[in-house]
Computed example of a mutant assay.
Amino acid sequence: MTNVDEVYERLRGTGPERDGWLSNHAPMAAEALIRHGHERIVHRWLDDYADRLETRPRGISPVLADDWESPLGDPTRTGDWLNFFDRELALAPWREVLVSWWPRLLPGIAAGATHGVIRVGHAVRSLIDGPTPARIGELGQGLAYWAARWQPLAPPGAGPYPATDPRSALDAVPRVPDQRSGARERLAQLAATPGWAGASGAVPGDPADDVPTRLAAIVEAATLRHGTHGYAAPVMLVHAATAPSAVARVLPVLPDALWKPSLAAAWSATAAITAAYSPGTARPVPARPPELVMALAAEDGDEHAIKFADTALDVYARTGSARVLDSARHSIHLLGA
């Protein structure tokens, strides 16, 4: 039987990206497979994924604790950031390092098309189960990736805005005008997109609800919306759900003072991915056979399908909604098409 520490040790020498910008999904997908009872196939899955892994990059010049802002968002310094967080986590408890760096990294939540925060979310979930050197090392890799690809979004507008339910709020997010380019180019259009400041600043949900409840509702809305809108960009629109899900996984180890900023950043990430990739019209979700969601994703083998199924199952555990499972099965079908 495979545990997550074996996976993290196996992947320790790999880099967070390949081909210059594509994310290494192996540690995230493997953690999700193991958590949902598919540990027997993990090493075979990793064998199949091996040709998409690159060697951990070397450093150029050390990142200094008192001069960390200048290399922030510089992907050529990825190796330096990996070395930096290895040192930081060797000197202080992992929760202390995370709490120190979370507010620094949170404004750049779009890093790596949100894969930085997603990788951190998977690592923290494993650490909550019990800290081990391998899990702490994986947290360092996630934080380093986030720092190296740190990318802020266009700032939201100032309120007040009417409270809305998350699904309606997502439907109201404006689309960027040019949807032919890559993620960085699409997200760069947000500042000039009419309606963006208002949509991103209007964090949906009842202000009387607590932050976990509002964040869970955003994840649920994005998960369901993938079923009706994912046909346009199945892979990229996954992250509208998995990015806020990652933030939700980190909340339990953050001080309360960081919860509201985390909620706002999670919503901005969901809204940004929606603006960049969502089509203008919905398509109905067809009925699907009642396969177990993670089993279907595991059979498909696509790393985004596995991570999306993981998030969908979190939503289902909270809501018991059959619509979530229908949407997830359809989305996995789209991702495997």
Rank of each mutant, 00 (worst) to 15 (best):
V4T: 07
E6P: 00
E9L: 11
T14R: 11
G15L: 08
P16M: 05
E17C: 06
R18M: 06
H25M: 04
P27T: 01
L33F: 05
R35Y: 11
R35P: 08
H38E: 10
V42F: 03
R44P: 00
W45S: 06
D47Q: 15
D51V: 15
D51S: 14
R52F: 12
T55F: 13
P57V: 07
G59A: 08
I60N: 04
P62S: 02
L64V: 11
D74E: 14
R77H: 11
G79Q: 05
D80C: 10
N83G: 12
F85P: 05
R87Q: 14
A90F: 01
A92D: 07
W94V: 02
L98P: 08
V99E: 09
S100K: 14
R104W: 12
I109E: 08
I109K: 00
A110Y: 04
G112M: 09
T114I: 07
H115S: 01
V117F: 07
R119Y: 08
V120M: 08
A123C: 11
S126W: 07
S126E: 15
G130H: 04
T132G: 04
P133Y: 00
A134D: 11
I136N: 00
G137M: 02
G142H: 10
A144N: 01
A148H: 02
A154C: 08
G157Y: 01
A158R: 12
A163D: 12
T164F: 01
P166Q: 03
S168V: 05
L170V: 00
D171E: 14
R175V: 00
R175A: 15
V176M: 04
Q179S: 04
R184H: 09
R186M: 08
A188R: 12
A188K: 11
A188I: 02
A192S: 14
S200N: 01
G201R: 00
P204D: 08
G205F: 04
A217Q: 05
A217T: 08
E220D: 13
E220Y: 07
E220R: 15
E220N: 09
T223L: 00
T228I: 06
T228L: 03
T228A: 12
T228G: 08
A233Y: 07
A233I: 06
P234G: 04
V235M: 09
M236A: 15
V238F: 13
H239F: 11
T242Q: 12
T242K: 10
A243C: 14
P244F: 08
A246P: 01
A248H: 10
R249A: 13
V250D: 07
L251P: 04
P252M: 14
V253A: 11
L254C: 05
L254W: 12
A257M: 09
A257I: 03
W259Y: 06
K260A: 13
P261E: 05
A264R: 15
A264G: 13
A265V: 02
W267Y: 05
S268W: 03
T274L: 05
A275V: 03
G280D: 15
T281K: 10
T281E: 09
V285C: 02
R288G: 10
V293D: 01
A295L: 07
L296F: 11
D300I: 12
I306T: 05
K307Y: 00
A309C: 05
T311W: 01
L313V: 02
D314V: 04
Y316E: 13
A317M: 02
A317H: 09
G320R: 06
S321I: 03
V324C: 06
L325N: 03
S327I: 02
H330G: 05
S331A: 15
S331H: 02
